[in-house]
Simulated assay, not measured.
Amino acid sequence: MHPYRRNTRWLAGALLLAGGLISLPALAGDSDASPANISGKLLLTGGVSQIEGAAGGGLTPWAVIGGYGTQDQIGANAFYTRVNVQDYHLDDAGALVGIDNRVEFSVAQQRFNTEDVGAALGLGRGFTFRQNVVGVKVRLFGDAVLEQDSWVPQVSVGAQYKKNNQGAILHAIGAKSDHGIDYYVSATKLYLSQSVLVNATLRFTKANQIGILGFGGDRHDSYQAEFEGSLAYLLSRNWAVGAEYRQKPDNLGIAHENDWYDAFVAWAPTKNVSVTLAYAHLGNVVIKDNQRGLYASVQVGF
């Protein structure tokens, strides 16, 4: 099947999941159910869809539970993201479900297209690495929105299992495995009076380029603690701007790896739709340095 059609089918499935979840109250015959009373959070405070599927910023997860559900409610999102840099592009799609504002389950599929670099490496133009990600996040304590009279942030722990489909190639370049698990702890605090959201995440990972180039390598093959951070300013109830930073390990001798950062703007006209645009700097990716370009993402849900 043509890669574009496969991507379209994956996105359609994710959107169908979110649409089905949105219709659950109606199917259950709850005449009082509506987007207003099944969604208790403020616009944008549930985050957008992070590149590995969790709720947060584009690059890093936050402690918030995805969707707009609060206690005794369910929230869900589906997303599609495209990242275009000079020599590569990434298509990313997935969905998540948040339950009782306590637990979040997410899935995502990333397709990293090597464009002309694939031909230069002998893999063929447009050679694609595909990675599936399954995640879970649990809120331990705190409430980033409601507990404005406390300095304690919302704190969550999470894990993301990743499986790459190009094991033979990954081993050839020095990666130790085509699958791995990232573990993280995130702390998020929203200061409503200042319209500022701050997030810090500590990730324990072996992933090379978030797993697209496998896990572990000839330089390092042990878990390393990497810092990730986000800062957002709420311009209004519908608009937010901010920046993110993500440290990454440097495990492969063949491909030096840089930290990532971006500057973003997010718009949520309603609780059912949000759009994020960012300028992302990814540094060196395989044999190409200074990879930077546009990150665009659309999210639907409740």
Rank of each mutant, 00 (worst) to 15 (best):
A63H: 06
R139I: 01
G67I: 09
K137F: 01
D91Q: 14
F79D: 12
V107T: 10
G142Q: 08
A144H: 12
F141L: 15
G142C: 07
N132P: 00
Y68D: 13
D92Q: 15
G94D: 06
R125F: 02
G118F: 07
N84Q: 15
Q71S: 15
D72E: 12
V133S: 06
A63L: 12
N132R: 14
Y80W: 11
R111F: 09
G142M: 12
Q148Y: 07
G118Y: 04
R102E: 07
E104Y: 04
R102I: 09
K137E: 05
F112W: 14
N84M: 11
F105E: 04
G69I: 10
A76K: 02
N77Q: 13
Q71H: 09
E147Q: 14
P61Q: 03
T114L: 15
G57I: 10
G57S: 12
Q148P: 00
V133D: 04
W62H: 13
V134W: 05
V134E: 01
S106T: 15
L59G: 13
D116V: 03
E104N: 09
Q131L: 11
G66V: 08
L146C: 00
W62N: 06
G142V: 11
G98I: 12
V138F: 13
G56F: 00
Y88D: 02
R82H: 14
Y88R: 02
G135I: 05
L123A: 12
E147F: 06
N132D: 05
R82Y: 14
A78H: 02
Q73W: 03
L90P: 02
V134F: 09
A78Q: 14
G57R: 08
V64S: 10
F127E: 11
G57H: 03
G94N: 10
Y88G: 01
A120V: 04
A76V: 08
G56S: 08
F129V: 11
G67P: 11
G66A: 06
L146E: 09
A95N: 10
V85T: 12
V136K: 04
G118Q: 10
E147C: 00
R102C: 03
S106L: 08
V152C: 00
G118I: 11
K137Q: 08
T81M: 10
